[in-house]
Structures are given as C-alpha cells and as structure tokens.
Amino acid sequence: MARFRDKKRKVFVKPIVQKKLGAVDHVTGDKIPKSFVFSRGKLPGPLRQLQMDLRKLMLPFTALNLKEKKRNSLKDFLNVAGPMGVTHFLMLSKTDASPYMKVARTPQGPTLTFKINKYSLASDVAQSQLRPRCPKDLFKNPPLIVLSGFGTGEQHLKLTTIMFQNIFPAIDVNTVKLSSCQRIVLLNYNKDTKLIDFRHYSIRLQPVGVSRRIRKFVQNHQIPDLRNLQDVSDFVTRAGYGSESEVDEEAATVTLVSNLGRTNKASSKSAVRLQEIGPRMTLQLVRVEEGLCTGGVIFSEYGYGAEKKLDKREDSQIEDSDHEEDEDDSDNADEMEEDTENGNDD
C-alpha cells in the first residue's frame, strides 16, 4: 500500500516540473505572466465549457488541467500561486442574473469584475464556420493582444488596458519570431454601449497575388488533379475563383523580413487573414476593487459606492422628517413674504 501511495504522490508533484518552462523569458529577460482560470461556485455545463475555452486561450502559461474542489477557497489558489509564479487569476462565477468573470492580479489585486452579457463557446464558433481551422501548434505560443477604443481617458478603462496588456507575455519587437504569432485576442470597447467585445482569432499569412491552387500545391506537396486540363500550363495560368476578401487587401498586407512557412517568402507581400477561434464574449465592466476580491471599490458601474449613498439618503430623510415640523412655520412666513413681494412688483 505504501508503495502505491508513493507512486501516486510522484505523479501529483509532476506539474512543478513546468517551472522549468521559465518564469523568465530567456531572450528578453522579462518576467512571464502566468494565469489560473477557475470557477467560484458550481457552474452549469456551458459555462464550464467556457472556462475550458478560456484556459485554452490563456495557453501556454496557464494550468490547463487545474482541478478545483468545492471546498477550495480563494486562499488555497493564492497559496499555490506564489510558488508557481502565477500572476493572474481569471474567475468565473454565476448568479441567477448572469455569469460573471473576475480578472485579478494575484497577490494584492486589483480585481476587475465583468458581467458576461453574451458568450459563445469555441465549439459554437467552430460549428458556425465552413472550415474551422486549428493547426497543431496553434496553442503553443501566447496570443497577441489588441486593445481598441479604450483611449477615452477614463481611469477604470486605463486600468483595464494595463491589466490585459500584462496578462500575456510582452513582445519584444527586435527579437520576436513572426511564426510564433499565431493567435490574437481582441478587446474592443464600445463607448456608447459601454460594452467590451472579447474575440479570439487565429492569424494566417497568405502570399498576395498567388492563386489558391498554387498556394495549396506549395503548401501540401500533393499531386494536383489535372484530369480536366489540356495542358500543364493551364494549371498555372487559369485563374481560380476570386479570393473572398479581395477588397481590403491593401490594408491587410505585410512585407516580411524572413520566410514564414513554405508559402510566405521574405520580402514578398503577404496578406493577413484572421479566422475566429472562440470563445466570444461581450463583457461589461461592473466593478473594480483594490484588493484581490476585497478592499475598497475604486469603480462601480452603478455609481461609486451605491450602497453607501442609499444609506446616506435614508439618514437624511429621517433628519428631514424631524426638522419639517419646526420649519413649517418659518416656511409659511417666507411664502407670505414672497407673495407680498410679488404683489408689490405688480
């Protein structure tokens, strides 16, 4: 029995080996942020899926198979987070009104609470597409992050920007390899609705001005079907169907420095194509707290310290009712005076 237990323990300890993956980027020397995605309270099926999707999104510097139990408190996660070098928590929870997502920086906070107004799972997104794309090494590199529309100068938005910028490892323009940029996370803030659109895309580069057939031929190295052609030259010269997004080709082209894959050669123009991977969320920033799920409320969507205000109002009402009787007489006198004044004016 004892031996069995030892073996089991060894298996359990194994994840710590991941530490070798590096808390520090060995090219730039930056600290790499890591994250935990977990739930507070019991989640229904689709939300559990969303949690899994979020973990995949946060790869590779996250615990994909993080096991949580009912009795795990936030303190437990915090205790593990220290030695593991985890810097961010993403917590999913749910009330009868709607699901919520909290994004927190670990030891001290702050905590951003988002209300998830709408969401679609990665599987839903894949189902809606004709050809969902998932290359093998898609999740081996961290995603880029694009924040758009956050520059309104409001404090909580700035904090949101910084929080999300720091959730993924920084990119050094001088050393980054373009082949490692495979995914992108977009957060788009809409000023009018105050909603944040959260999207996750895969990046694909395609050479410009090459027909689809030739591109596929170069990519796959498979013998093409030439049955219907008169001559081999037809294969090259005959144009296929027009590309689906020929219109904004100009804006989406990039000149590469180095070769990227088989098809994208250096110093040739390539078009950037994005395809959604999912999950997809529409978030609403509800509250910002100073600490890790505790502390003073810096920002609240429903007014700063709405509860406190309510209390004050009640107090003032009580006071008013006390004073009213006393003041009634004087008020009447004032009115009388005003009346007389009016009469004088006329």
Partner: peptide, 24 residues
C-alpha cells in the same frame, strides 16, 4: 472587429519587420 484586429496585427508585423530588418 476583424478589421480592427487585422489593423493591429498589420501594425505589429510592420513594426517587427522594421526593427528586424537591421539584424538580418
């Protein structure tokens, strides 16, 4: 949204190519 994301990616890639053209 895809347009916005594409713009961001293009910006980054251009910056990268500019920075890395010196260290070819």
């Amino acid at each position: 949204l895809i347009g916005v994301a594409t713009k961001g990616v293009v910006k980054l890639f251009n910056a990268v190519s500019k920075a890395q053209s010196t260290q070819k």
